[in-house]
Design a protein around this nucleic acid. Structure first.
Length: 534
RNA sequence: GGGCCUGUAGCUCAGUCAGGUAGAGCGUCGGACUUUUAAUCCGAUGGUCGCGGGUUCGAACCCCGUCAGGCCCGCCA
């Protein structure tokens, strides 16, 4: 059974109505690691609906969280905002400086700035969750009841956190973080509490009061999270392994939720996504691939497949090179399979059956719109990558695909894919081994691997190319002539060609590629190869 | 120190929750297509399931131990 269906089955035991929550702090640029959070939630939601449940996906935007530090992409002037809530400070402009104008005129905040492109990517990828800006929840008093319980009995909360997490809280710890005279959550001393007011003194010596029913502050994270489960009626929430460790915020959250008087959600811990060879993704280190950037390269269904096809507890190494090619080809294969027929076989072992069912579920979850059928393009990513490099114009590709009988007319899926393919080829992510490069200098290593018969053809190739008509047809004819004159089979002739022009043993059809190259360059290379012969 | 996850074919991983003949894809090799857009099709190859013990008629799966790798325990998806 697919992992999403396992969760859906568990949810069904708890009733019919479910709210699946995801939550992210918009502290910097979003990356595909964040996509796992949202997509995991989305896939659970779809699976739950498929199981006949009433399910909704929500995205809690943690814009009540404070700015932790001045990230490299921020101007030094952000120093004054450290400790301030992300939804209450201006967004950085192009230079990383605070954009006061937009902040004051449109209320455009730091959190909005990073959230917006992520939401656009989500839309493309078929995820449109209900947004719950956390700062708004605070200001609307949604946290009031939980905050009151905590402030009325700080010792109970303290006991839970200290016992479950095993760490000691400072003696002046209080379960409410007021906003100080300048807007920061840091460096305050709590001097008293009388519902609904928390009295404080800030680091500048200013005294003030924070109304816990009006969002003049926030709950610390370990209380904030379980409080949200309550008033948002969360029944299920996937979260990263950082929260899932023993003594982590989920463990304390479970008990704190009970203290607040509601049930914790069904949980699912997922592993992180790292960039191949570069370690964990992190917005602050700049070691990221953003969802928008990823979508420029690959279609959304393939990004979805990446998540759907990996169990949540599997760490994913996102590889924008060959890994992406394999993933895309995997998608193509999946979409051309007939699962119904495969499953109708009586001979399947339980194991094989499970495998087929999981593949079917993964493909289903990869669709941008739930319920949509996968459309096989019958052109692999690999193949398209070749064509896109050889033919500079799209119609050239379509006509060549028609000739080979692969397609009759280019579908919108396929032309969309070609657009992204071209972007990918131009990007730094395109793998070198897929790149078609005609050599400039003879490649000694490849030439030396040729046998006697293959070498014999080289001078003939050089001579025939000199005389050839410089078109794909003319060059093909020259190749044939060379083989005939050398009295060698075509196989040997091609081997020699690939060694000469590409430094490889095999490759794509050469004639059309060479026809796009400058004749003098090709001939010079051919003669140079010929001259290297022993 | 406490805890989590991972370890199965050359590679990426299913299969472990419900014990019952070891599975896919990729790769590799071979063949076909009187040689080709790294194509496609067919076939073959390939594993003491990290290691040791235990339970069982039977263990990749359950239990105990152990080794290795990754990670978490202020914040981070």
């Amino acid at each position: 059974m697919h992992w999403s269906d396992v969760i859906a089955e568990r949810l069904a035991l708890d009733g019919n109505d479910h709210i699946i929550a995801t939550g992210i702090t918009p502290s910097g640029e979003f990356h595909i690691g964040h996509l796992r959070e949202i997509l995991t939630g989305d896939m659970i939601t779809r699976a739950a609906r498929r199981a006949g449940l009433n399910a909704e996906l929500v995205f809690v935007v943690d814009n009540a969280d404070p700015l932790r530090k001045v990230y490299p992409f921020l101007d030094a002037s952000y120093e004054e905002f450290i400790g301030h809530q992300l939804g209450a400070i201006p967004a950085p402009d192009k230079d990383g400086k605070p954009d006061w104008e937009r902040f004051e005129n449109e209320g455009w905040s730091y959190g909005d700035h990073f959230l917006k492109p992520f939401l656009e990517a989500l839309k493309q990828i078929g995820v449109e969750p209900r947004l719950i800006p956390n700062l708004t929840s605070y200001r609307e008093g949604k946290f009031a009841s939980s905050a009151k319980k905590a402030c009325d009995d700080p010792d109970a909360i303290r006991e839970i956190i200290e016992r479950v997490s095993g760490r000691e809280l400072p003696t002046d710890w209080f379960p409410w973080q007021p906003v100080d005279s300048k807007g920061s959550l840091d460096g305050l001393t709590i001097t008293g509490y009388e519902y609904p007011l928390v009295m404080w003194t800030d680091q500048y010596g200013v005294n003030g009061q924070s109304d816990i029913t009006k969002g003049e502050g926030k709950l610390p994270w370990r209380l904030d999270w379980p409080a949200k489960w309550g008033f948002n009626n969360i029944t299920c929430e996937p979260f990263g392994k950082d929260h899932g460790a023993a003594g982590g915020s989920f463990a304390t959250g479970v008990e704190i939720a009970a203290f607040f008087g509601h049930k914790p959600p069904q949980s699912l811990v997922y592993e992180w996504i790292s960039l191949r060879g570069k370690g964990a993704m992190s917005s602050s280190s700049g070691n990221t691939v953003g969802p928008i950037e990823a979508l420029r390269l690959v279609p959304p269904e393939i990004l979805r497949l990446l998540i759907a096809n990996s169990k949540p507890n599997k760490a994913i190494e996102f590889d924008t090179g060959m890994g992406l090619v394999n993933l895309a080809d995997e998608y193509e294969r999946l979409s051309s399979r007939d699962f119904t027929e495969e499953l109708s076989s009586e001979k399947l072992s339980r194991r094989q059956r499970v495998q087929i069912e999981d593949a079917q579920a993964a493909l289903r979850l990869s669709m941008v719109s739930a319920g949509e059928r996968a459309e096989a393009t019958s052109v692999s990513f690999r193949h398209l990558a070749l064509l896109a490099q050889i033919k500079l114009r799209d119609d050239g590709i379509w006509s060549s695909l028609k000739e080979s009988g692969a397609i009759s007319d280019p579908s919108s899926v396929l032309s969309d894919r070609l657009t992204r393919m071209r972007a990918w080829i131009e990007s730094k992510h395109f793998p070198e081994e897929m790149r078609i490069v005609i050599l400039k200098q003879p490649d000694e290593a490849s030439l030396s691997k040729l046998d006697e018969e293959q070498r014999m053809v080289i001078p003939h190739i050089a001579a025939e190319l000199e005389a050839a008509e410089w078109t794909a047809e003319g060059i093909t004819q020259a190749f044939k002539n060379a083989a005939i004159h050398a009295e060698a089979p075509m196989r040997s002739m091609y081997r020699a060609c690939y060694a000469m022009f590409m430094g490889s043993e095999r490759g794509p059809r050469l004639a059309p590629i060479l026809a796009n190259c400058i004749r003098e360059d090709v001939c010079m290379l051919a003669h140079a190869c010929s001259a290297r012969l022993p």
